[in-house]
Amino acid sequence: MRNYLKQIRTILWKDLLVEFRTRERLIAMGAFVVLVAILFNYATDWARVSPEDIASGLVWMTIMFAGLLGVGRTFHLEAEDGAFQGILLSPVPKDAIFIAKALANFVFLYIVALLVVGVFIFFFGLEVGGSFGMLTLVIALGVLAFVALGTLFTAVSTGTRMGDTLLPVLIFPLLAPVVIYGTGATSQFLAGRPVTEAEGSIRMLAAFALTAFFLGSWLFRFVVED
């Protein structure tokens, strides 16, 4: 068990270190998020709608698309010199590989998701108020569900001729519950309603995220097998 955790930590740390050195994915996702917000500004008539009314949906859709951008590159780093083959040939259980890769994706996407919230506060004067803590929790759960399915199906789509273009077809229908409960809870927070009202959504998000994570770590072995 200690070895198992150490192996997860090793792969996770390697991913974070490489990303820290190249900053490719974070820069791409971060720029995407800010640019989308700029375009949203011109795509919306702010005289007629207030940010609180539509922000929750926009925030979640931005996270989804930014996530697609980042998660799609999960295995590019490894493909360069066959390094993924090197990991598969080492005595690391496949579920440990999945958990490490998904957690690395979680770190990147969570940073970006918080940036999304920040951008909406900065550009559109979104009032988050006292529910900021709960909002970060809801986003963390949504992002966890996203990276669980995203990591699993990126491994699937990377092996196809269609490549990353297949990824949204595979994960968007599956992620419908994340968008529904995520935006539901978020809009309740933004409307200043008591946290207890969003409790059901948060529970469902947590259940979904955990299910997706366990499914991913179980099914990953069938995906990476040659």
Binding site: L17, V18, L77, E80, Q85, L89
Partner: peptide
């Protein structure tokens, strides 16, 4: 088991 192929299995950024 040790495997050596014509690919190095190495990370360029490490």
């Amino acid at each position: 088991i040790g495997v050596l192929s014509h690919q190095g299995f190495l990370y360029g950024h490490l």
